[in-house]
C-alpha cells in the first residue's frame, strides 16, 4: 500500500489553515442559522487550545452541496464546508444550517474531522442530530458510546463536545478503504 501517511498538524497550523469566515457556513444571525459548538478535551479533561475542526454537511434539504466558494464566501451560497480553530478554552463554533436526512427516515449528521498538535493523524467522527430514527452506526454501539456522537439541542444551536481520550471518549471512525 503506497498511501501517503498522515502527520500531525503541529502547533503552527494557524499560519496555513484557518481563514477569515471559515466557521461561518452561513452568516451568524442568518434567519435559520444554528450554532454548532463544543469543546475539545484531552484525557484529563483539560481543554485543547490548539485543535482544528472541519465540518462537512448536507443542506437542510439533505442534498450534498457541490458549490465552490468556501474560502471566499459570498454570504449567499451554502457550500456545506467550514473550518474552525479552538480558542484558549478549547472551544470551537460554527454558524451553519441544520442538515436534512440523506433519505427520508434517516438520522442526519455532520461529518467532522479533528486535527490537533499531539494527534499524529486526523480523526473522523459524526455529530448526529438528536432524534429517534434508526441508524446503522448508532444502533450498533453501547449507550454510553452512542451518546458521544449525538449533539445536545440548545435554544439556538447544538452542542458537541469532543473527548479525545479517556472517560467519555468520543467514538472515532475509520472507513473501509483507508490504510491502517
Amino acid at each position: 500500500m503506497s498511501y501517503a501517511p498522515g502527520q500531525t498538524v503541529g502547533p503552527f497550523f494557524h499560519l496555513g489553515l484557518p481563514f477569515e469566515g471559515g466557521n461561518l457556513l452561513v452568516p451568524a444571525g442568518y434567519p435559520d442559522a444554528v450554532r454548532l459548538h463544543g469543546r475539545v478535551l484531552d484525557g484529563e479533561g483539560t481543554p485543547v487550545p490548539d485543535a482544528l475542526i472541519e465540518l462537512w454537511q448536507a443542506g437542510p434539504d439533505g442534498r450534498v452541496p457541490r458549490a465552490t466558494g468556501s474560502i471566499r464566501r459570498d454570504g449567499f451560497t451554502f457550500t456545506g464546508w467550514g473550518r474552525a480553530q479552538t480558542d484558549g478554552d478549547g472551544h470551537y463554533w460554527f454558524s451553519t444550517l441544520t442538515p436534512g436526512p440523506a433519505e427520508p427516515g434517516r438520522r442526519p449528521f455532520f461529518a467532522v474531522t479533528i486535527f490537533a498538535r499531539g494527534l499524529t493523524d486526523r480523526l473522523f467522527t459524526r455529530a448526529y442530530l438528536p432524534g429517534s430514527e434508526p441508524d446503522g452506526l448508532l444502533d450498533g454501539l453501547e449507550p454510553e458510546r452512542r451518546a458521544t456522537l449525538i449533539t445536545t439541542r440548545e435554544q439556538r444551536g447544538l452542542l458537541f463536545d469532543i473527548h479525545l481520550q479517556g472517560e467519555g471518549e468520543t467514538v472515532f471512525l475509520s472507513y473501509p478503504r483507508q490504510a491502517r
Binding site: 484525557g43 472515532f172 475509520s174
Partner: peptide, 18 residues
C-alpha cells in the same frame, strides 16, 4: 500525544451521504 490519542480502536463504518 500522551493525553490526546484515543485509546479505543477506531470504529469502522461504511461511508454514507456527505
Amino acid at each position: 500525544s500522551v493525553l490526546r490519542y484515543p485509546t479505543r480502536d477506531l470504529h469502522q463504518v461504511d461511508p454514507e451521504g456527505v
